[in-house]
Amino acid sequence: MRALFAAPLGADFWKLWTSSAVTNLGDGITMVAGPLLVASITGDPAAVAGAVFAQQLPWLLFALAGGAWADRLDRRKLVVAVNLARAVALCALALAVAGGAASVPLIYAVFFLLGTGETLADTASSAFVPALVAPDRRPTANSLLYATFNVVNQFAAKPLGAWLFVIAAAVPFGVNALTFALSAALVAAIRSVPPPEKRPPSRLRTDIAEGIRWLSRHRGLRTLALTMAVGNIVFCAAFAVFVLYADQRLGLTEIGYGVLLIAFALGGLLGTLAAPPLIRRLGSSTLLRAGLLIEVALHATLALTREPAIAALMIVVFGAHTTVWGVVVTTIRQRDVPSSMFARVTSVYAFLELGGAALGSLLGGATASAYGLVATYWTAAAAMAVVALAAWRPVAAL
């Protein structure tokens, strides 16, 4: 980790990294506090799940449009404006909670606004690294950003969010509002992001179509995007019933289930440390091919084993793979996608990934109900084996 932080990436990148760290902290706090708040108002499980869905829905509705707008507007100013708007929305929610006026519809509305902001801010900020960091330093920069997510969002923020909610239900939302305000100030201080390129006026759907066409014509990135879409379908199908798998197949208690979830984050952290040297020594295509095999191995191992230790070890390996894969793919996009198209192409990726995740979550329960838990993992393993065969040659050129 020290080697990552010692990398000469420039003052503007560290402003971006700090902004990412504080927003990840705030997002993780709200990710825990939001369902807790809904559960304190109603015991309806569907209502509690709806809070998460309200924040995910904008990605399915607005991801492609968000990418088009992010390529039209000044990206730095867009991120600043969106973060300030999200801070205001969370302040309103915190005040409503403090005053005893919070309701489920209000929570849904605020979370929907937060998700809508993500489609703009996250897509626009994805284009910052290519503008701030030299090509040979981008794997390190991307690894640092992934490390921030794994350490801050996955480890630190969630217990902190629960603790803050216990202190006072309004506090976590107020803290998240402060993180967005601080992030806006940090991004406003970044000076190296160039203004948008001037181009003739066009319709929004024309801009979206250009991004889709560009991605469809790039064989390698098209293959990676489709691989991620299918991978998310089968992963989310399998892990939609993971809590039942941990109980019925592995015989774990609630604490054991929690340990397995921590194993994902641990693997992700290891992946952030390993990604830069692995990319230098093995190259992108080798790591992508290895990742395809790990995808198959995860589901096959979970289908075969009844040993918690084996399952946990495989999950750590898989968590490391997902981070290495993410760093590799992000670096390739930063290398190959033109700046004027970057947000749109990134938004197509996000749409495919989240669309796959949503579809997989629906399919997982149905498959497990019809054919049993183990069948869900065998189906996932078989599907990823087919994907690995189809993607094997295209990824060799990346």
Rank of each mutant, 00 (worst) to 15 (best):
S143R: 02
S143K: 02
S143F: 00
L144Q: 06
Y146I: 00
Y146D: 03
V152Q: 05
N153W: 09
Q154K: 13
K158A: 12
K158C: 01
K158V: 12
P159M: 06
L160N: 03
L160T: 11
A162S: 13
A162I: 10
A162G: 15
F165I: 07
F165R: 05
F165T: 09
I167A: 11
I167N: 00
A169K: 14
A170D: 12
A170S: 14
V171I: 13
P172I: 07
V175I: 13
T179L: 10
F180V: 03
F180W: 14
F180L: 05
A181V: 03
A181G: 11
A181C: 10
L182I: 15
A184G: 13
L186Y: 11
L186Q: 08
V187E: 07
V187I: 15
A189Q: 11
R191D: 05
S192C: 00
E197V: 06
R199C: 00
P200D: 13
P200C: 00
P201G: 03
L204A: 10
L204M: 15
L204T: 14
T206M: 04
D207E: 14
A209T: 13
G211W: 14
G211V: 07
R213C: 01
W214A: 01
W214M: 01
S216N: 04
S216E: 06
R217S: 10
R217N: 04
R217T: 08
H218F: 04
G220R: 10
L221K: 06
L221H: 07
L221A: 09
R222W: 10
R222C: 09
T223F: 06
T223L: 04
A225F: 13
L226M: 13
L226V: 13
T227S: 11
A229V: 01
A229I: 00
V230H: 02
V230P: 01
G231D: 08
G231S: 12
I233V: 15
I233L: 15
F235V: 02
C236S: 15
C236I: 06
A237F: 14
A237N: 10
A237E: 13
A238R: 12
A238W: 11
A238Y: 10
F239Y: 13
F239N: 11
A240C: 08
F242Y: 15
F242C: 03
V243D: 09
V243N: 12
L244D: 13
L244W: 07
L244R: 10
Y245M: 08
Y245S: 09
Y245I: 07
D247G: 00
D247R: 14
D247L: 01
Q248H: 14
R249V: 15
R249H: 02
L250C: 08
L250P: 08
G251F: 09
G251P: 05
L252E: 09
E254T: 09
I255P: 00
I255M: 09
I255W: 12
G256F: 08
G256R: 09
G258M: 02
V259S: 04
L261E: 12
I262H: 01
I262E: 07
A263D: 15
F264A: 11
F264S: 14
F264M: 15
F264Y: 14
A265I: 04
